[in-house]
């Protein structure tokens, strides 16, 4: 319970950093000096954000935005409202957009977006921000509280003949986290 509260607390800290620290300082460094190569008198260099790419913000009303494995397909995750994502691809219909985080989703667990996964989302719920500007910040460190497996595994209880509740587990727990977890019993 304490562990979970701690996880939530850190998630909140990161969310705060995302909103205040990262975006402000990143935007402050953006100088919009883009020009086409056939204009020779203007500066040719622009300062870009840390992760070049095309960004969009999740603009659902109240709910998280579902992430799907394929356009219109199975739901594989969700992204909270207000989150900024990196746009990788749009399908032919223009209705579905493949999005990811600037870290990729494979090895990252975001404290304030626990169900984050890369995949296809509906373009109707994205506000496109353009290139080299507003972006998920490095100010908030991706959180992976339990080490290597950012998302917990589940035992497939349905394959068990006996009735037990589903159980989630993690492996390769962070060593310091493990020590802190065991230490909690000293407080009893």
């Amino acid at each position: 319970m304490v562990l979970r509260s701690w996880t939530r607390a850190i998630g909140l800290v990161f969310a705060t950093l995302f909103s205040f620290l990262g975006l402000k300082s990143a935007n402050a460094q953006v100088e919009d000096f883009v020009k086409s190569s056939n204009e020779s008198d203007a500066p040719r260099i622009v300062q870009n954000c840390y992760f070049p790419g095309e960004y969009a913000r999740v603009s659902t009303r109240n709910t998280d935005l579902n992430v799907r494995q394929t356009p219109g397909g199975r739901i594989v995750g969700s992204i909270p409202r207000g989150w900024e994502v990196l746009v990788r691809e749009t399908d032919r219909s223009g209705r579905w957009v493949f999005v990811t985080s600037h870290y990729g989703s494979g090895s990252v667990y975001f404290g304030s977006a626990p169900n984050f996964n890369e995949g296809w989302v509906s373009a109707d719920y994205l506000t496109f921000l353009g290139s080299y500007c507003d972006k998920p910040s490095m100010g908030g460190r991706p959180m992976n509280n339990k080490g290597m497996s950012p998302k917990p595994f589940y035992f497939m209880e349905s394959q068990l003949e006996t009735q037990v509740e589903p159980q989630r587990f993690s492996v390769y727990e962070d060593w310091t986290n493990l020590g802190d977890r065991i230490s909690k019993s000293l407080d009893d």
Partner: peptide, 16 residues
Amino acid sequence: LEIRYFGKPPSPPEVP
């Protein structure tokens, strides 16, 4: 094609 040049990306903002 149009060519746009970009400079060295800034360092990520430091966490105090």
